[in-house]
Design a protein around this nucleic acid. Structure first.
Lengths: 122, 122
DNA sequence: TTGACATATTCCTATAAGGGAATACAGTTT
DNA sequence: AAACTGTATTCCCTTATAGGAATATGTCAA
């Protein structure tokens, strides 16, 4: 079995750095942007931009409005929420909170050891 | 150019659902776990578990302690922080905050229209 | 030593990728 | 109609899967 298609879910779509870049760009403008603007800003070959937009569109991360010969792309940020929620699950592994928990645990351990030593002395 | 290797970064490693499952499991225990426990809990073929663990290890998402013939795997959650941080960038697209902004904008629009009508009337 | 156990590695196959180049296609202007 | 513009699609190529099955490796026990 090959890897799941990039269009399988946001996790796969966003694994590609260039696709993340496109999303960041669309998020900045916080509106629509025609393909050629993206091409100009990122300085990538136009077919490359179109292809990546195609993947993003298929997973629902962007939506398109057609006007004349232009296509205006807009980000659908909510589709990234599952990713955010999943990552947030592991928050305790890097948050300060953890440091505090660690410190408390270590202090406790020291105190226990101290009291044990007292017992031995008495 | 093919897709970036799964071991390229956390984004790619975590694109595979089974690998996410393994991480969730390791996060639950919040400690170490030998391969066979994972095999038993997930009911996957042992080589499959070992292979996925191999990828996770190569990107630094897990670390191993060897003891006898057992390998104890532990999660390195902090490696997921870049993923979290990136996704958080888009938080405004789904947070309540956005709703409030939207509401305010819509209210404003209505008020403006109302005042325009007043002008027309006067 | 021999065998049982825990885990990793190898081989195989089908599938899909992303980039580059060329080209197709639809709308617009002349 | 012809030329031009904005964008999408197709073809080609190299590389990397993930799963399944079989096997290798290392360790402990009798």
């Amino acid at each position: 079995m090959p890897r799941a298609p990039t269009t399988f879910d946001p996790f796969n779509a966003v694994a590609e750095p260039k696709r993340r870049r496109v999303l960041e760009l669309l998020a900045e403008t916080d509106g629509e942007m025609p393909v050629n603007d993206i091409v100009a800003l990122l300085r990538w070959p136009q077919p490359m931009v179109s292809k990546h937009l195609g993947v993003l569109k298929e997973v629902g991360l962007v939506s398109v409005r057609e006007e004349g010969r232009q296509r205006f792309y807009r980000i659908n940020g909510e589709v990234l929420k599952p990713l955010y929620d999943w990552a947030k699950t592991f928050e305790r592994f890097w948050s300060r909170h953890l440091d505090r928990i660690k410190e408390r645990a270590e202090r406790k351990a020291k105190e226990q050891q101290a009291s044990k030593q007292k017992e031995n002395l008495s």
